[in-house]
């Protein structure tokens, strides 16, 4: 379930996007740190991580916006780089920031981006109307994009990525800061594109519910590294009945591990996200908690923090990063 154990087969036609050993540095800062992953054709692949984890950097590279410091990206059977047009044409991109001309109307924006992706004539007109319909902006298409609400701008931003009917759609936090109505709209669009048209989707988010509901597989990324990669269900099941994460004095680590491992209600004691914490797996975290606290007390060991990780993605995330997604 860790990145290293993720399947890294040679590119077969079941692989839509492959990143191999991708590293990206901004000066001294390593934003993406040796990431290798494969996105399968037709799946919805989630990229989950806190602010600054390197999500945008990674998927900008995966959409050909810039060259990584090291590593290789392939789309289908073609290598991707900022200058490879054939590979880029297969990808639809919805950047995290609104990438539109505010002074132009919705239709003018879409016509422009459509032409940039090689559409023209009747097909361009049809596609513009089709995507406006999809995102529910047909009646506002002639208004300046700058006059749209935040949610409507997001929807137009999405529409611009759909114009050329890409086989791979890369979305960078498409629902961030959006009212529930627009959010559901975008959400439905993505689901339908995947289900009805078989579009492969890479979806960046820090909303657990979205990842859980939408994604076939999720990669959890932190500090530029992939720390876990599997289906949401498998990730959650890995928590078993739940995990108790306790903060301890690092000096007492061995002692704590030893005294807790022997408890009947505890299944396993493993390292937490840092040296000051331990993950305690239990068939029922709530029941085990009492035993854990008693054992610690009895041995006169200090407990600095306690967290119960319910079996959900949020907990998976906490387990691997020690941080909450929404900080």
């Amino acid at each position: 379930m860790l990145a290293e154990t993720a399947p890294v087969s040679s590119a077969d036609n079941g692989t839509q996007l492959r990143a191999g050993g991708v590293v990206h540095r901004y000066g001294d800062l390593t934003a993406v740190d040796d990431v290798t992953l494969e996105v399968r054709r037709g799946e919805v692949f989630g990229l989950l991580g806190p602010n600054g984890a390197g999500k945008s950097t990674l998927i900008s590279i995966c959409s050909g916006m810039f060259e990584p410091t090291a590593g290789l990206v392939t789309v289908g059977d073609r290598q991707l780089s900022p200058t490879t047009r054939a590979a880029k044409r297969r990808i639809g991109v919805v950047p995290q920031d609104i990438a539109l001309y505010e002074k132009l109307s919705g239709r003018q924006n879409l016509r422009f981006f459509g032409r940039v992706y090689g559409l023209g004539g009747r097909r361009l007109r049809e596609r513009v109307e089709a995507v406006l319909e999809v995102v529910g902006l047909s009646d506002r298409g002639n208004d300046q994009a700058g006059t749209y609400s935040g949610g409507m701008q997001r929807r137009l931003n999405l529409a611009a990525g759909l114009l050329h009917e890409p086989e791979l759609l890369i979305l960078d936090e498409p629902t961030v800061g959006v009212d529930p109505q627009s959010r559901n709209h975008i959400f439905d669009n993505v689901e339908r594109l995947n289900r009805d048209q078989g579009v492969t989707i890479v979806y960046t988010t820090h909303y657990m519910e979205e990842a859980e509901r939408l994604c076939d597989r999720v990669a959890i990324i932190d500090h530029g590294k992939i720390v876990a990669l599997d289906s949401p269900r498998a990730l959650i099941e890995s928590l078993g009945g739940g995990v108790i994460q306790i903060g301890i004095d690092p000096a007492q680590r061995a002692q704590v591990t030893e005294s807790l491992s022997s408890l009947a209600s505890v299944q396993a004691v493993g390292p937490g996200p840092d040296e000051k914490s331990l993950n305690i797996e239990a068939s029922s975290a709530r029941h085990a908690l009492v035993d854990v606290m008693q054992a610690m007390n009895a041995a006169a060991l200090e407990v600095e923090t306690v967290r119960i990780l319910e079996p959900n993605l949020e907990s998976v995330f906490l387990r691997y990063t020690g941080r909450s997604l929404r900080d």
Binding site: R89, D97, V116
Partner: peptide
């Protein structure tokens, strides 16, 4: 203004030279 608008990012992903 175009750089600021973010539209340039989309253009960089687009198949144009």
């Amino acid at each position: 203004r175009e750089r600021r608008s973010g539209a340039m990012r989309r253009l960089r992903a687009a198949p144009v030279g």
